[in-house]
Simulated assay, not measured.
Amino acid sequence: MDSPFLQNIIFFFAAIDPVGTIPIFLAVSAHLRQREKVFMAIQATLISAVVLVFFVIGGELILTASAIPLSAFQIAGGSILFIFALTMVFGDAKPESELKSLQGHSHSSVFPLAIPSIASPGAMLAAVILTEKDRFNIQEQLVTTLSMLVVLAMTLALMLISLFFSKKIGPQGAAVISRVMGIIVASLAVTHILTGIKAFFNLA
Rank of each mutant, 00 (worst) to 15 (best):
I183R: 02
S187P: 02
A175C: 04
R179Q: 05
V176H: 11
K167T: 02
I169P: 03
S178I: 03
G182I: 05
K198I: 14
I193C: 11
V180I: 12
S187D: 06
K167R: 12
A174Q: 12
F200G: 15
G170P: 01
T191I: 02
T195D: 08
I184P: 01
L194K: 06
P171V: 08
L203W: 13
L203Y: 10
Q172W: 03
L188T: 10
K167H: 05
A174L: 08
A189Q: 04
I183H: 00
L194V: 15
G196W: 07
L194Q: 12
A189Y: 05
T191W: 00
G196V: 15
P171S: 14
H192T: 00
V176P: 00
I184E: 04
K168M: 11
A186C: 04
G196L: 12
T195V: 08
T191R: 13
A189V: 09
L194D: 06
I193K: 06
S187F: 03
I197E: 12
G196C: 07
M181R: 05
F200D: 07
V190Q: 08
I183G: 00
A175N: 07
V185A: 04
M181H: 03
H192W: 03
N202L: 08
T191M: 02
S187E: 06
G170L: 03
T195S: 10
F200H: 12
P171L: 13
H192A: 06
I184W: 01
G196Q: 10
I169L: 04
G173E: 05
A189T: 07
G196T: 08
L203A: 12
V185D: 05
L194A: 13
R179K: 14
F201C: 09
N202Q: 13
G182A: 10
F200A: 15
V180Q: 03
I184G: 00
K168F: 06
I184R: 02
P171K: 05
F201N: 14
G170F: 00
K168D: 03
V190R: 10
I183C: 07
N202D: 12
K198E: 13
V176M: 12
V190Y: 00
V180C: 05
S178Q: 12
G170D: 05
L194N: 11
I197L: 13
T191K: 09
K168E: 08
H192N: 07
A199V: 15
V180L: 13
I193P: 01
R179L: 04
S187Y: 03
F201G: 14
A175M: 10
V185M: 10
M181L: 10
S187A: 13
A174E: 06
L203M: 15
T195Y: 01
I169Y: 01
A204E: 15
I183A: 06
P171R: 10
S178N: 11
T191C: 00
I169M: 10
G196F: 03
V176I: 11
R179P: 01
A175L: 11
P171C: 09
V176N: 06
M181F: 13
V176L: 12
A204G: 14
L194G: 04
K167W: 00
K168L: 14
F201I: 14
S187W: 01
K198H: 13
L194Y: 09
